[in-house]
Write a protein that binds this DNA or RNA. Sequence first.
DNA 1: GCAATAGTGTCTTTTAGACACTATTTA
DNA 2: TAAATAGTGTCTAAAAGACACTATTGC
Lengths: 227, 227
Amino acid sequence: MRGNLFAVAVDLVVLTVRDGALCGLLVQRAAPPYAGYWALPGGFVRPREDLRDTAARQLAELTRAATGDAVTGHLEQLASYATPDRDPRGRVLSVAHLALLPDLPEPVADPEAAVSAWRPIDETAGLAFDHDRILADGVERARAKLEYSTLAASFCPSEFTISELRRVYEAVWQTEIDPRNFSRKVTSTDGFLMPTESRAAGGRGRPAQLFRRGPATALSPPLTRLL
Amino acid sequence: MRGNLFAVAVDLVVLTVRDGALCGLLVQRAAPPYAGYWALPGGFVRPREDLRDTAARQLAELTRAATGDAVTGHLEQLASYATPDRDPRGRVLSVAHLALLPDLPEPVADPEAAVSAWRPIDETAGLAFDHDRILADGVERARAKLEYSTLAASFCPSEFTISELRRVYEAVWQTEIDPRNFSRKVTSTDGFLMPTESRAAGGRGRPAQLFRRGPATALSPPLTRLL
DNA sequence: GCAATAGTGTCTTTTAGACACTATTTA
DNA sequence: TAAATAGTGTCTAAAAGACACTATTGC
């Protein structure tokens, strides 16, 4: 079958919200090409592995999350990149995936002793390969999807308050949202938020009610992002 | 670089609206595997070709459209498929692309003397490889995008009436839309429709005004699809 | 004339956006 | 007590949806 063979990699755009800023997970490359540069985490697809399995395996390595835990995150295919000279080693096609995670209490681990770090997405310029572009595409996908899906909850822990959810929107969109209108909107969307018995503790004001994610995936009508 | 090399193909989900039905472009395979089966048009990526160029080249071959013509269609990357045994010849990754075209006046050509045909999308079951799945993903992408983008105009010729545009929505969503409310909605969206001096001829009733696509790409607020 | 389609206007209901007010916590 | 955050209610403006009416064509 033709001689045009490709190495196929999966690169991950892993996003979270910490301290009110949308952050991406980066690793520092130890070996050439681009040794010393920051890059998206990723790796090659194994011989009998499907793309999604490759992405899930790499994500698990990065977070060292026991699979038994409640899965609050989100993983989806983003796009593929195969410009002829994007990798000096040869023809490499990268199938980028987008992962949205809650701010992890345990620090993100480095599977192969590589240095990894969360970086605010507006301080990520200068990545290896075409990873600036891939990261920008992932961020834009996330921004768009918050409008018409319940995906913002993927950035929250399994139980969260409406304020936490609102701060996710504010961080991803870099907007301010009226807390009262936001509350009305999300609580009136059927299946978005399931109330729990407990309330948040440790805050400064009145303790807020805690919610879990409901079964709804779509928001209609959508939340409008107005910058 | 590891021995896990892939052949990389681009498959096309080419959609149009004809006679009030959303149709996909299929080709009948001449050679094994799946000889005699209907499949999505596609082919392998050439040695120094980018993915989008492969898709555009194959689309041009299918339509024999002179590149000088006004580009009314739309082409975007859809998703990649690489399940280990999806192709019996070996490990093949397919980067599916989605193309939206107006109903072509000239018949769609067969570049390699292959039989090709437009088929209503609900009569396409039983395609080769995993093409049923890819086609379904493409149709779902198109349905979703009509809601919040001006992409419906890609299904129309360069000049079209509001009725033609409405019939695109009705065919893709399989809904009925009130012509008067639809007209109000699309004409009040800035940059969606640019009026021309001419009017449609040959219809049964009062001749309708012809429009061209405007520069707008997003619809906000979106058109709601209610089945 | 009639049937068919185009185009405009009007009314009602729903939703978004702005913002007042009360409730419950910590310091 | 004040400061901070949670939660509810109210008003207004915009948009959606239903539908009456006029306009212009072919037959």
